[in-house]
């Protein structure tokens, strides 16, 4: 067993908790973890693989949530096509963002994506109130209606989410080892050289940003259906901040790290928020300590420990 497999094993335990625990305990929490993981896996393609820090992913997440909600509730679409549309719209908004934001890099890229996503947040709360329900949002977002299974039961919905999650993870794993993923690694490592050996840097960055937007859109749609509600909060910059924290905490640039980050984040959110109303501040503090203490996140820490306890067996 190497460290990668150990990480995969940990992830497998977390996501199969409802099957392992008596009476399907923890299914609500794991459902949220699965959805946020899809978001985080997609985000890490941009952040960890291509090295672009986006602060605008809430826009794709929220837009996906609204797309699914509006199509199912106002247009009478079925759930699955609506979920597909949530991904397409999330990706399309990301593509539009990328045309503005990819002209600049580093901090300016982060600020530009932040500004664009806040624009959408404000529009959803005010100008588009007729469509979005303004600050009240839209309640009563449905869940899928497939094979006569009652997905309004969290235990059943878990399997649906698990399937989407595994698909998302597989695609992300493929992208990482594909020529596209390698080219993105090259861009992250040295943009000047990547361009000079013939990579079309901007087009590759736009591609991965769009793919990441699809992930965010699908995740947003799924979250709306999980909590039967969509509101402008999902478009708020703090949602972008959450996913950045999750990925950093878990280990950016690794396939399984972001999922561990999501799991810790969600468990803390669940547990801390029952202890104190200042839970978000405490979470922030933990995050700061963690990033200073383990710059490569939990995944990095686990891999380091694993290498230490298995001498010679470098993974």
């Amino acid at each position: 067993m190497n460290a990668q497999r150990l990480l995969a094993f940990l992830v497998a335990i977390i996501i199969s908790a409802p099957l392992l625990l008596p009476d399907g305990q923890g299914v609500g929490l794991v459902n949220a973890i699965l959805i946020w993981s899809i978001f985080a896996i997609g985000f890490d393609l941009v952040f960890g693989v291509a090295g672009m820090l986006s602060f605008g992913h809430a826009a794709f997440f929220g837009v996906g949530a609204y797309t699914l909600s509006l199509l199912t509730m106002r247009m009478g679409w079925d759930f699955i096509p609506s979920l597909g549309a949530a991904g397409v719209v999330g990706g399309a908004v990301a593509l539009v963002f990328s045309y503005f934001a990819i002209r600049v890099s580093g901090l300016f890229f982060a600020l530009l994506t932040l500004a664009l996503s806040q624009l959408i947040y404000i529009m959803a709360g005010t100008k588009l109130r007729m469509l979005t329900g303004g600050v009240d949002g839209i309640a009563g977002v449905p869940r899928p209606d497939l094979f006569g299974i009652d997905f309004y039961d969290d235990g059943n919905y878990y399997f649906f989410l698990l399937a989407v999650f595994i698909l998302a993870l597989l695609i992300s794993g493929l992208i990482r080892i594909s020529p596209l993923g390698q080219a993105l690694r090259a861009i992250k490592s040295n943009e000047v050289r990547a361009e000079q050996i013939g990579f079309n840097v901007q087009r590759l960055q736009r591609s991965v940003f769009t793919i990441s937007g699809i992930y965010a859109g699908v995740a947003g749609g799924l979250l709306a259906s999980l909590i039967f509600y969509v509101g402008p909060q999902m478009l708020h910059w703090s949602t972008s901040g959450d996913v950045v924290i999750m990925v950093l905490l878990g280990g950016m640039g690794t396939l399984f790290g972001p999922i561990l980050g999501v799991a810790i984040f969600e468990i803390m959110r669940e547990w801390l928020s029952t202890q104190t109303s200042h839970w978000y501040g405490i979470l922030g503090l933990i995050f700061i300590v963690c990033t200073i203490g383990m710059p490569k996140g939990i995944a990095g820490l686990i891999m380091q420990l694993w290498d230490r306890i298995t001498p010679g067996g470098k993974s």
């Binding site: 493929l174 992208i175 080892i177 594909s178 020529p179 596209l180 993923g181 390698q182 080219a183 090259a186 990547a194 050996i197 013939g198 990579f199 079309n200 590759l204 591609s207």
Partner: peptide, 22 residues
């Protein structure tokens, strides 16, 4: 070197296969 070879051979970045397969 493999990245440079890839950049030259695949300008359109074929997608669904590990780069080691080429």
């Amino acid at each position: 070197l493999r990245l440079a070879a890839q950049a030259h051979r695949f300008r359109l970045q074929p997608f669904w296969s590990p780069v080691g397969k080429f």
